[in-house]
Amino acid sequence: MTMQNRLDEIRDGLLQKLKEATDKQHVEQLRTAILGRKGELTGILRTMGSLKPEERPAFGQKINQLRNELEQALDSAARTLEEKEKAARLKAETLDISIPGTRPELGAEHPLISTMNAIVDTFVSMGYSVAEGPEIELDHYNFELLNLPKDHPARDAQDTLYFSPNILLRTHTSPVQARTMLSQKPPIRIVCPGRTYRADEVDATHSPAFSQCEGLVIDEGVTMADLKGALASFATAMFGEDVKVRFRPSFFPFTEPSAEVDVTCSACKGKGCPKCKGTGWIEVLGAGMVNPKVLDMCGIDSKKYTGFAFGIGIERVAVLKYNIPDMRLLFENDARFLQQFGKGR
C-alpha cells in the first residue's frame, strides 16, 4: 500500500465514522484516535525521519494538509452534534404553560377608598387642595357657622350624634370648610374628604357612618356656571364621558341659590328605566352658591367674594358606579365582595 493510499484510507474512514457519530464524545474519541499524540496520523508523521531529506517537505506538507482537513471535519461534526444536543435538552425542558402561575395572593382595594381617591384626584388635578379636620367637632363649626343656629328645624335633616350639647360627630365635612375660611384668605379651592356620621339606622340604603368629599371655592366672580362646570368634570371623570349633569332648585342652609345635582342614569343612558324611576336621571349630590351669611360669619367679605360649595356622598357614588345592591356590603368587609375591586383599573 502506498503512503497516499494509506492517507486516503484514514480520511475516508474518519469521514465515514463522523457521519455515524451520535454524540460529541464520540467525535472527540475519533479526534484522539487520529490526531492525538498516539493517533494514526501522528504515527505516520513520526515516520518522516526515515525518509530521504529531499522527500520530507512534500511529505510534511501533505500530512499537514490532511490534518487541517480532518480537524475542520471534526469541529464541524462536533458543532452540529452540540446544536442537536442543545435542541434536545431544551425540548426536554418544555413546560405546560397553561398551568397557573405561582404568586402570593394579592389584597384588594376597598371601593369606598378607591372612589374617594378618584374623586380627590379629579379635583386636585383642577387645582383644588385637600383640607382635613376632626371627626368629633364643635357644634359651632358643624352647624352655627353654616347658618344652622340652635333649634333650627333644618337641623332635622341631619340627625346628629352628640357627646355633649356642644360636641358632636360631624354630620358632614362642611366644618372643615368653615375652619378653612376662618384661617385662609381667598382664593380658596379645597376639597374635604372624610368620614361623617348621622343617627340613621343601618339598612340597605342608609349607614350611620359614611364618607363625604365636599368642595369649596371662593374667589372674586365665582358663579353657579363655574359650579356646574366643576361638577360636570367630576361626573365625566367618575361616570364616563357621555354623562350629563342637571341642576334642580333646592334648599340648603349654607348655600343660596342651592341645587340638587343629577347625572344621566348609567343603566339606561337617560332613556328612563326602573333604576332612575323612569326619569333618566340619578340624584348624586347637593350644591350651591355659598350663603353670604356663611361667608360673613367666617370672616370673608360677601360683597367682594362669591363662592360655591358641593357635597358628594362617597357611598352614593360607589353604589352607583359599581351597582352595589346593599350599602351594608361596604362595611361588612367580606373578602369575596372586596376581591372584586382588586380586579380592574
Binding site: P104, A108, E109
Partner: peptide, 12 residues
C-alpha cells in the same frame, strides 16, 4: 395590598 392584605372600612 402586595402583602395580600385586603383594605377594609368599619364603623368608628
Amino acid at each position: 395590598l402586595g402583602f395580600g392584605l385586603y383594605e377594609t372600612v368599619t364603623y368608628s
